[in-house]
Amino acid sequence: MAVASESQDGGASPRLPWQQALLDDVFLLFMAGLVVPTLIYIVWGLLELSNVPLLKP
């Protein structure tokens, strides 16, 4: 498991760039992938639909 020791062994290697740490955070990615489309697509869409007025001829 050479890969694991390299990435875990923070003391020996210099600090990793924050961009790399961010892109490696699979859990954060998972949450973002659920929250962002739920808010922008589903919640916004349903809000708009619930605000459609009744037809008054």
């Binding site: 890969v3 990793l16 760039p17 790399q20 892109l23």
Partner: peptide, 8 residues
């Protein structure tokens, strides 16, 4: 394969 330890 996994990229190098420092890939950014």
């Amino acid at each position: 394969v996994a990229p190098p330890a420092r890939w950014w």
